[in-house]
Nucleic acid binder design. Structure first.
Lengths: 328, 328
DNA sequence: CTGAAAGCGCTTACAG
DNA sequence: CTGAAAGCGCTTACAG
């Protein structure tokens, strides 16, 4: 019963061939204005819509982008999802949403993406086996790692300039005075956490500021628990740098529970600039990730690769900026 | 170059007909174990995957569910998205994510859903013109409104038992003492806000407790600003009921800014039980929406309608429960 | 600019 | 249980 109206029906009503109907719906094809009008009128009358599947079958192209995401709990990512969806929509692409619980994308998810012959893939906060990447490459499906670097030189990557950002963060905190600082790391297997650590640590060491690192996991609960652990030592550090905002908020709440005043007794800075960072309960100083710009870079690359596949590999780093609020 | 391996190639290598290859991948079809093994071996060797588009073209069925969402800013919805994706994945369905900025789903989004011939549709916090619904109905595409009621009797709806919940909330607050209460409403055109208001108001009036309603919009900023407006009056109400958690958090921050103690000077209760409600900075008393159960109800209905379309219309209301924390 | 025809990669009666 | 063949709804050379 479904979708009963076909190009053939429209052709009959319009008094043209099925090929002409097809041409009306295929941009770039040659059709006279007269034919176009007849076809569109007939299509309107019958409620015709071209069948995407027949179309994809023959063109071997789809208008679907696969978007892979893990941490929807972190408000940063829903925002990313929204912006990608909006941006792709402008170009006529729809988003197939793939959620992965594991750090690494599972085989079944890759298969789904391949089965739907997606035009392109965006991977946000998940990793991928190189063999999986090979499957996309051999099918000439362009792929972008968003906000994560894997093996350099293997993927097109778009992310924030974490190294330079964390150096600036270190300098900023040093400027605020105080002699020992704590880095609250995110998951150790992410480039974002490692790079933010590297820039921060290196700058502190160069300035002979004491540095401690505590492992955590990019969640609010993690930031909270980790900060409690930091406070077990007798000395409160002069400043905290949390690898993302949601951990910074947890850290802030942990500090408050111990009646440690921020920014008087210690300072804290996050990363991302999620909505909550600006809430009056937090007023968190942070580093803004330019999501819009990052999304734009990603979409532009994918569209150009869809247009003509080159397999270009590059790492694009977009600069963010310091957002100063009341925790420093 | 893409997806070059077809059933024909596999058939040749396996020494069987293309029909047999097809049968191996079509569950329920009759194939001998011997044939199956030969085919799977050949498929493995060639890296064969059935083409979903060819399949959909002929069966007129897809394994795609359209999920329409508006407010990804409210952490409640990413959670909903995640649970739907996980749940559908178990049944072999993928999620086409449609984000709408407007309250009402736009025509182009409906077209996308129809073009991809989705097997079913879930609409969360958005509304839809009846004419759009008609398009789904006439194509026998099952549809569920999740957490929103539109015209009763027109849609299959799954939501929380808002009326009973808000009555219990009112009784709970009355039990805590105090004589005048404020309802912070969400968007006026949503059933969730209206129903929560109705149950709350009705119970207060029956108990002769003064009631005031303030319009707001389901956002943190809205809850914050609206509460400031409430406080412009000289008298601080004895309690606030915010139509969702994110507004309640905004309200709480506004109260703090005015140094009004919670729960001593006034009380506040939200709705949803989002992650943040349990954060130490808030410890918000709220009503938990049983997302898991609601998702399950939705998925079960859709699967049964996909299996055999009946057009069944019903409103399923799932009970939630009070989560008592420190704001009451 | 237009139509007739081949073909995309599958599923599914049909006959054996 | 299996194979040959028709056909799903399109696009796209090809010829006119």
């Amino acid at each position: 019963m479904k979708n009963v109206v076909t190009a053939k029906d429209v052709a009959k009503l319009a008094g043209v061939s099925q090929s002409s109907v097809s041409r009306v719906y295929f941009e770039g094809a040659n059709v006279s204005e007269k034919t176009r009008k007849k076809v569109l009128a007939a299509a309107e009358e019958l409620g015709y819509r071209p069948n995407e599947f027949a179309r994809s079958l023959i063109t071997n192209r789809t208008k679907i982008i696969g978007l892979v995401m893990k941490g929807v709990q972190n408000p940063f990512y829903p925002q990313v999802l929204q912006q990608f969806t909006a941006s792709f929509k402008k170009w006529g692409y729809s988003v197939l949403f793939v959620h992965t619980n594991n750090d690494e994308i599972q085989k079944e998810d890759i298969e789904t993406l391949l089965n739907y012959n997606v035009a392109g893939v965006v991977i946000t906060d998940a990793t991928m086996a190189l063999s999986a990447a090979e499957a996309f490459r051999s099918n000439e499906i362009p792929l972008v790692l968003f906000n994560r670097k894997l093996k350099t030189g293997e993927f097109y990557t778009v992310c924030c300039n974490n190294l330079s950002a964390s150096r600036q963060i270190a300098e900023y905190l040093i400027g605020k005075g105080g002699g020992d600082m704590v880095y609250i790391a995110g998951n150790e297997n992410t480039s974002t956490s490692r790079e933010r650590e590297a820039g921060f640590r290196e700058t502190l060491e160069r300035n002979q500021v004491a540095y401690r690192k505590y492992a955590s996991d990019f969640t609010y609960e993690g930031g909270y628990a980790t900060t409690l652990k930091v406070l077990e030592g007798k000395k409160v550090p002069s400043a905290f740098f949390a690898a993302n905002d949601i951990m910074a908020l947890g850290a802030l709440d942990a500090l408050r529970q111990h009646s440690i005043r921020v920014p008087e007794d210690t300072k804290i800075i996050g990363f991302d600039n999620i909505d909550m960072a600006s809430w009056p309960a937090y007023e968190l100083t942070t580093w803004e990730q330019p999501i819009e710009k990052m999304v734009e870079e990603t979409v532009n690359y994918l569209l150009s690769e869809i247009d003509e596949y080159s397999g270009l590999i590059k790492t694009v780093e977009v600069d963010g900026s310091l957002i100063e609020r009341k925790t420093t």
